[in-house]
Amino acid sequence: EPSQADLDALLSAVRDNRLSIEQAVTLLTPSSGGGSGGGSMDAKEILTRFKDGGLDRAAAQALLAGRTPA
């Protein structure tokens, strides 16, 4: 399960175009075949909204942490 520091680094990389959204989703869902963790939004949607400015960093982190299976 990614830590808050991992999520923060991942969000920074996506925002700075050092990591594509697809690459980030793969890192967030290493063994689930890329499927959502059952959250209301999947990781790709969360990351896309964050990059487009629709979500701030704290909200994106909380959503990603919340949808990651324990």
Rank of each mutant, 00 (worst) to 15 (best):
G66P: 07
R49A: 08
G54Q: 15
L28W: 05
G33M: 08
A5L: 15
L28Q: 01
A65M: 12
S3D: 10
I46V: 06
T48P: 01
A60P: 00
A59H: 07
I21H: 01
A59K: 08
A43K: 06
G34V: 12
G38H: 12
L19D: 00
T68N: 07
V14T: 02
L28I: 08
I21P: 03
D8S: 06
G66W: 05
G39K: 11
R15W: 10
G66K: 09
A70R: 10
Q4K: 13
D52F: 05
E22T: 06
I21E: 01
N17S: 09
S32E: 13
A59P: 01
S31Q: 11
R49T: 03
Q61W: 05
E1R: 10
T48E: 11
R49H: 05
T29W: 06
L11K: 00
P2Q: 12
G37Y: 11
R15Q: 10
Q23I: 08
P2N: 13
K44P: 02
G35A: 08
Q4N: 14
D6P: 06
F50G: 00
A58V: 11
M41K: 06
V14F: 03
R49E: 04
A24G: 03
A70H: 03
R18W: 07
L11C: 02
L64T: 01
T68H: 08
N17L: 06
R57T: 07
L11T: 01
L19C: 05
L47S: 00
L10P: 00
G37D: 07
S20F: 02
R49S: 05
S32T: 13
G35D: 12
T29I: 09
S12D: 15
K51D: 01
R49N: 05
S20C: 03
T26V: 12
L19H: 01
D6N: 09
G53T: 02
L7T: 04
D16Q: 08
S12T: 12
R67W: 15
A24I: 03
D56A: 06
R49F: 03
P30V: 12
P2S: 11
L28T: 02
S3R: 12
E1I: 13
S40D: 11
T68E: 13
R15G: 06
A58Q: 11
L19N: 01
L10C: 03
P2T: 12
L10E: 00
L55F: 04
S32A: 09
S32V: 10
A65V: 10
A9G: 09
L47H: 00
R67Y: 15
V25A: 08
A70Q: 04
G54R: 15
A58W: 07
A24L: 03
Q23W: 04
G39E: 12
E22R: 04
N17A: 06
S20Q: 04
A5I: 15
P30G: 15
P30H: 09
T29V: 13
G34Y: 02
E45K: 04
L7M: 08
L19F: 03
S40I: 11
G33Y: 06
A43P: 10
Q4W: 15
A9V: 09
T68D: 13
M41E: 10
S20E: 04
T29Q: 14
P69R: 13
A62D: 15
F50H: 02
D16M: 06
G66R: 05
G33W: 09
T68P: 11
L11I: 03
A58Y: 08
